[in-house]
Amino acid sequence: MTAMLEIRSLKTEVVTSEGRVTLIDDINLELAAGEVMGLVGESGSGKSVTGLSIMGLIDKPAQVTGGQVLFKGKDLRNLSEREIRSVRGNRIAMIFQDPMSTLNPVLRIDTQMMEVVHAHEKISKQAARERARDALGMVGIPSPEERLSAYPHQFSGGMRQRVAIAIALLMSPDLIIADEPTTALDVTIQAQILSIVQKLARDKGTALIWITHDLSVVAGLAEKVSVMYAGRIAEQGKTADLLRRPMHPYTNGLIASLPAHNQRGSRLKQISGTTPSVANMPKGCAFHPRCASATQLCLSPPQLEPVEGRLLRCFHPVMEGASS
């Protein structure tokens, strides 16, 4: 099976006259049609930048400076502005974090939905409207026909995110990149949104990249997971495998710090130190100042290498039984 999306050594930097700052580097991902991948990392780890880089939506002064984004065999980076526009929202859709600000406050829902259909397909107004209505119904919005004429402020946060998802689904894309779409929502709403997306993606055979900082979300949703740290992929593999037996000390720390793994009454485990800033990256392995098993070796940069059925960027993998 050939990959639908293949990302090779993707690199995005902020380029100014004073110099370059790397935001993400050496990002490698593979996604088959209909596959769901979790992209996990802390704030500032570069997971959102990765999503936007795939879409070619990185804003100046940042820009994608290296690597390939092969979508169905074509490198999206080589497409003209017009060509990539015909992919965006059509074959690859994106959902953003804050549903309160992603919808335009002064435009009606039907305007914001129908314009997507019209941008990608020659179709009558009536047909576009029907498709918009059906999409709203699909994401569980009651009386979609009436709600089409509503404005975003007349929806709750959870409902707005459903609208955003409906917009993403309008053209039945091959891939949806979801950038923390449940982070800004209540826990109960989170679960609803999660199950809607999961169901629709499965029914329609849509592949998903689910960007999140929440490992527990990934556990129930994704087949594969990539853990990012400081703009690079630290570890990548099958979700069940990786969560059961994390090999990168960072992944290990992340899992250990989940409250569910904690003995009641004992202190919560945490990873000491803080995420490094992009302007001030540690030499070698970016994680080594926070890592218990760091050695002299870690001052040189480790490569992403296949280890036991997964990809790992570490000189000192956590071994079975040695879990902290």
């Binding site: 879409m55 939506l57 804003d59 526009r85 015909s86 992919v87 965006r88 929202g89 059509n90 859709a93 994106m94 953003f96 804050d98 600000s101 992603t102 919808l103 335009n104 406050p105 002064v106 435009l107 305007t111 314009e115 997507v116 941008a119 990608h120 955003a164 917009i167």
Partner: peptide, 29 residues
């Protein structure tokens, strides 16, 4: 630099549509 313009770009809209509909209506206020 707003999220709704970023979302509009992600929807694959043309710059003209983004400027004359999404941006203009907000700017006119």
């Amino acid at each position: 630099s707003s999220e709704y313009v970023r979302f509009a770009k992600a929807k694959g809209l043309s710059p003209r549509r983004i400027l004359s509909v999404h941006v203009l209506k907000n700017v006119m206020i």
